[in-house]
């Protein structure tokens, strides 16, 4: 680990530990009511109990499966339709405003409708998570293609590449930074979609657990769920960072500080 990274991690850890100490102290000296906020020591004890009872695995596996299935299909659909509209410009001109208009509808308000359509099981949550992922990935892919330098496609063609070869070897790699950005946004959206779907109607999963615990004022369980979701987010983003670093090793990383602009793989 580089010295800079070490310092960065120490600062991050210090902020988190400082926050936890403050939270515990606030609860201990009754600056806040534990009835509404619980306290770190209680949350940690609950997390241990939650894990050892096997309930954590059960609920986590349901929610994550819904979210990731939605993320997968939403991303695939977003990339494919983005590419399709990038290729067939007139289709893009027709459908892009329609997709933008649908995107304008808050999808969460339609969650009950999706439950009506697909039932309270797995499918409705996957649909909601997938739909929320789709928009981010679609817009990122479509915009990446329509703003791509035309000369790159022309160069590829003049060098003998077919349309398919140009798509695979030139268009997709060049659009990767934007597609990854769309997937990164979709990561959070898919979790939100799955959890809100569970809120609306489910028999298990983190969304159901949070709704159930809140109705019994079991705040420490709500906090435990939030901590786990936070950890899931951190792990997934770290994974995406690795993938991004590998796929975008060609890209110049720019910072506002003039002297620090470097190639990613340096």
């Amino acid at each position: 680990m580089k010295k800079d990274d070490l310092i960065l991690n120490v600062i991050r850890a210090a902020i988190i530990i400082g926050f936890l100490i403050l939270w515990e102290a606030a609860a201990e000296y009754k600056w806040v009511s534990t009835y509404y906020t619980s306290r770190p020591s209680e949350v940690i004890a609950d997390l241990i109990q939650f894990t050892s009872s096997g309930e954590l695995m059960k609920h986590a596996s349901i929610t994550l499966k819904e979210a990731f299935t939605g993320l997968f299909y939403g991303s695939i659909a977003g990339i494919l339709i983005g590419l399709l509209f990038g290729q067939f410009v007139n289709a893009g001109r027709v459908f892009n405003p329609i997709i933008t208009a649908i995107h304008g509808i808050p999808q969460l308000t339609l969650a009950p409708v999706y439950i009506l359509w697909f039932g309270i099981g797995f499918a409705s949550k996957v649909f909601l998570a997938g739909l929320m992922t789709f928009f981010g990935v679609f817009f990122a892919t479509y915009n990446a293609i329509i703003t791509m330098e035309q000369n790159l496609i022309e160069s590829a063609s003049l060098l003998g590449a077919s349309k398919y070869q140009t798509l695979i070897h030139v268009v997709l790699p060049t659009c990767t930074p934007w597609i990854i950005m769309g997937i990164r946004t979709g990561l959070g959206s898919s979790l939100v979609g799955a959890i809100v779907g569970e809120y609306m109607g489910a028999a298990a999963g983190f969304g159901w657990m949070v709704a159930y615990a809140t109705s019994y004022f079991n705040i420490k369980r709500v906090m435990s769920c939030i901590v786990i979701l936070l950890l899931v987010g951190i792990v997934m983003n770290a994974g995406l960072d690795r993938i991004e670093k590998f796929l975008l090793r060609w890209r110049t990383q720019t910072s506002l500080s003039i002297e620090n602009n470097t190639i990613q793989n340096n």
Partner: peptide
């Protein structure tokens, strides 16, 4: 081309 148009990913 005037703008070089090299493939930036390669």
């Amino acid at each position: 081309f005037q703008q070089y148009s090299l493939f930036p990913t390669m």
